[in-house]
Simulated assay, not measured.
Amino acid sequence: MAAKGNKTIIYAALGANAAIAVTKFVASAITGSSAMFAEAIHSLVDTGNQGLLLFGLRQAKRPASPEHPFGHGKDLYFYSFMVAIIIFGAGAGFAAFEGIEKLLHPGAVEVSWINYAVLGAAFLFELFAWSLALKEFNKVRGDRGVLETVRRSKDPTLFTVLFEDTAAMVGLIVAFIGILAANITGNPLYDALGTLAIAAVLALTAVFLAIETKGLLVGEAADPKLVAELRALVQAEPAIETVNELLTMHFGPHEILVTVSADFRNDLTAEEVEDVVAALDTKIKAAAPDVRRLFVQAMDRADHRRARLAQAADA
Rank of each mutant, 00 (worst) to 15 (best):
G5D: 12
N17E: 11
A19W: 00
A21L: 01
V22P: 03
F25I: 11
A27G: 07
S28H: 10
I30L: 10
T31P: 02
S33R: 12
M36E: 08
M36T: 06
F37C: 14
E39M: 14
A40M: 13
H42C: 10
T47D: 00
G48W: 00
N49E: 09
Q50W: 01
L52C: 02
L52R: 02
G56T: 07
Q59V: 03
D75S: 10
D75R: 05
D75L: 02
S80T: 02
F81I: 08
M82I: 14
V83Y: 09
A84L: 04
I85K: 07
I85T: 12
I85D: 11
I87E: 13
G91M: 10
A95T: 12
E101I: 09
L103T: 12
P106S: 09
G107S: 15
G107M: 13
S112I: 02
N115G: 13
N115E: 06
G120D: 05
A121H: 08
F123Y: 14
E126I: 08
W130D: 10
K139C: 03
R144A: 06
R144H: 08
T149H: 04
S153G: 00
P156I: 02
T157D: 03
T160K: 01
T160R: 00
V161K: 00
A167Y: 06
I173T: 15
I173C: 14
G178Q: 15
G178I: 15
N183V: 08
L189T: 15
I198T: 12
V201I: 14
L202W: 14
L202M: 14
V207Q: 06
I211M: 10
L216Q: 00
E220W: 00
D223Y: 05
E229I: 05
E237W: 01
I240K: 04
E241P: 03
L246F: 10
G252S: 01
P253L: 01
H254T: 10
H254L: 04
I256S: 02
V258A: 07
V260W: 09
A262I: 04
D263S: 09
D267E: 08
D267W: 01
A270M: 10
D281S: 11
I284S: 05
V291M: 02
V296A: 02
M299V: 11
D303P: 02
R306G: 00
R308Y: 07
L309M: 15
A310I: 05
Q311K: 11
A312K: 12
D314M: 14
